[in-house]
């Protein structure tokens, strides 16, 4: 019998920036059909992990592997990872002046589609417009969004919605949502979460990075991990998130300190 290959796996990952180690041995296994939440206080290394998974060039990997569909993606540039079906919803999306959402998305969607489904699977302009309209509707976004410049002058909420819109268009198999809840009011949070839930299916997996438990009321995780000092200190079920909300991160710190000693 062939050995089972998880969709996504991190093995003993040590990484950092400018010689400063931030991640100190992260291990994580995520299967298709699963939603994992990664929680932790500020500065624990959550966003670093998101960047390293996506392949940000400023981050250095000192040790370990990140396997996506069994392939170590650490040697691949970010665009190849994206074309394999990985996606990162940014905490702070960058503005690209002069580039409309629609033009950008058409190029992105088609390069990903061609790589994943075959050269002839690019969308015609007509098919693309239809898909875009459908997804905009799903996220309750105005159609004029398509002709606005990418993230330029977007409100915090618009930026987060625009990230989920991109996810909807690119149909990733593994997506990391980095603090997608930050800066959202409760209505916007609900819309975004609804969108994510509609996109989620048993063939894909999500890693939801968040500081607060709030978003997990809407996007229900199967597993919750708590990151402290660049390591996953505790893992558990959804109840762990609630416990954290109640007791705070200091409780984990004490627990973790005890476990470590």
């Amino acid at each position: 019998m062939a050995e089972h290959t998880p969709l996504f796996m991190i093995e003993n990952l040590h990484a950092g920036i400018e010689g400063k180690e931030i991640l100190r041995g992260v291990n994580l296994v995520i299967e298709r059909g699963e939603i994992h939440a990664l929680m932790g206080p500020n500065g624990s290394g959550k966003s670093t992990l998101a960047y390293v998974i996506a392949g940000h060039p400023n981050y250095e990997v000192y040790e370990g592997r990140i396997l996506y569909k069994g392939e170590n993606v650490l040697e691949l540039p970010p665009d190849e990872r994206a074309r394999m079906g990985m996606f990162l919803a940014f905490q702070y999306p960058t503005a690209i002046p002069g580039v409309t959402m629609a033009n950008f998305l058409r190029l992105a969607v088609n390069s990903v589609r061609k790589a994943r489904y075959g050269e002839d699977k690019a969308l015609t302009p007509r098919e693309f417009r239809r898909l875009l309209r459908e997804k905009l509707e799903m996220l309750r976004m105005d159609e004029t969004f398509a002709s606005r410049y990418l993230n330029e002058g977007f409100s915090g909420g618009e930026k987060k919605r625009a990230e989920i819109l991109q996810m909807a268009m690119l149909e990733p198999e593994f997506a990391v949502l980095d603090e997608t809840d930050s800066g959202l009011d409760i209505d916007a949070l609900r819309t975004v979460a609804d969108g994510v839930n509609q996109l989620f299916n048993s063939n894909m997996a999500l890693l939801v990075i968040t500081h607060y438990q709030r978003i997990l009321n809407y996007i229900r995780p199967h597993y919750v991990h708590v990151m402290l000092d660049g390591k996953i200190a505790v893992s558990g079920g959804p109840e762990l998130a609630e416990e954290l909300e109640e007791k705070g991160y200091d409780w984990v710190k004490t627990q973790y300190a005890e476990a470590a000693s």
Binding site: G55, H56, P78, D79, A82, I96, V99, F104, A108
Partner: peptide, 20 residues
């Protein structure tokens, strides 16, 4: 990085920024 993380090659990302 942002554009590349959406599947654009570095050259595509660069020309998109310049065209913008």
């Amino acid at each position: 990085f942002y554009l590349q993380s959406r599947g654009l090659t570095e050259a595509e990302a660069m020309s998109m920024i310049v065209n913008g």
